[in-house]
Design a protein around this nucleic acid. Structure first.
Lengths: 212, 212
DNA sequence: TGTACATCAGTGAACGCGCGTTCACTGATGTAC
DNA sequence: TGTACATCAGTGAACGCGCGTTCACTGATGTAC
């Protein structure tokens, strides 16, 4: 069964995409090559026609997840008035929906701690994507000088990531919602003027297609 | 070789203590039972005289790490003027030393994301310890009403945890230090008045014995 | 245009290895007499 | 006090299993003639 030129690329992309979801759900070591291939409708034997090693797939899948998030926030910012951009991102990030669906959510929260323990190659690849994301967020604060905007973007990212992680540890009950509230308020207070809608239920996915 | 009554308890405690370090360093699944026992100077066969399963040790080790951290911050607050307490904790938390020594550092940052994927039993045990830590921190903000203090404690914890995680992803270079700076500033700005020493090198371990 | 051959993405069995767990055994020390 | 026995923390071999990786093979389709 020999396939057309694009077929291999499509298959490769499908494996990466599915892996990026399952790895975020189960952790960087929580799912094996065989199951990852099954996700893409293949058997494990074909894996090494696409990747040099399991680690190579992990690196690609992490990069994919980070790129999708960065792109998602960038698009969300694009359709939002400049002064509300950071606030809108925070509100879309710190939601019960995001907390309860790590597979389609932020790779930093889901995999960041594990990444810091991986090989330098994996860690550095992830760090580069992290910096890209921070840069993109800094661009959403044009009213500040570059360096200050970067600092604010880093702090906002840290608060969002930390809050989401604490909320996931707490499960999905009252404590968890309390944590989301606290983090949202803190990140909003620092990020920008709270929008009029700041106290209403967040609207994640309303103006931007849900990530898949 | 039959031992005295206390001997088993001492051995048990030693296994838990050593495991809490190695698990924070290597991740919740990054080190095996045999190596954990070797850390305590024992062989793997004796493990099940002390624990029902590997997971049981993991739960104890996580609880131990969280208790030590909570106690550490509580003691540090005790020797600090009330209005500087949160700031002092933040300064002691967000340091290159802490970033580069996860084994003796915060279990939330090192293991939180993995915990959220573990069994409900493990996750709930960890969540209970997290809430204890938040309560302890809230007590360090007596000038606020209970609920507001809790919120602030949660937000500060989230910012600290998130910042430390981002800094570890970034390694130990310039980007990483920039992240620590940004997080410190954000957490301080929210936590309390920055101390006069806020811009100097942090003094982690100066007034409080280093954790071991 | 038609035919023979080459290609290579994908299959499924097999590999070596490390893991969590089990188990028969050891032997120093506590206890019963 | 002295002696025989019981205890049980700790040892090290063995188990079953799942993992990442390798490999001989397949067969539909591209290519050479």
């Amino acid at each position: 069964m020999r396939y057309s030129k694009e077929h291999k690329l499509e298959t490769h992309a499908r494996i990466v995409k599915k892996a990026s979801v399952r790895l975020r759900e189960k952790g960087a070591h929580g799912i094996g090559v065989a199951d990852l291939m099954k996700e893409a409708g293949l058997t494990h034997g074909g894996f090494y026609a696409h990747f040099d090693s399991r680690e190579a797939l992990v690196i690609e899948a992490f990069a994919y997840a980070m790129d999708r998030s960065t792109e998602r926030w960038r698009k969300l910012a694009e359709v939002t008035p400049p002064k509300d951009r950071m606030a809108t991102i925070v509100e879309n990030y710190l939601t019960p929906l995001h907390r309860d669906d790590p597979g389609h959510g932020c790779a930093i929260t889901a995999l960041g701690a594990e990444v810091s323990r991986e090989s330098p190659k994996t860690r550095k690849a992830f760090a580069a994507k992290l910096e890209q994301m921070v840069d993109m967020l800094a661009e959403q604060i044009p009213e500040l000088p570059r360096k200050a905007a970067r600092k604010q973007a880093m702090a906002a990212t840290a608060t969002m990531v930390g809050t989401l992680m604490l909320a996931r540890i707490a499960g999905s009950g009252q404590l968890s919602d309390e944590i989301l509230d606290a983090g949202r308020e803190a990140a909003l207070g620092r990020a920008a003027q709270p929008r009029s809608a700041a106290k209403k239920a967040p609207v994640r996915g309303a103006s931007i297609p849900a990530r898949r």
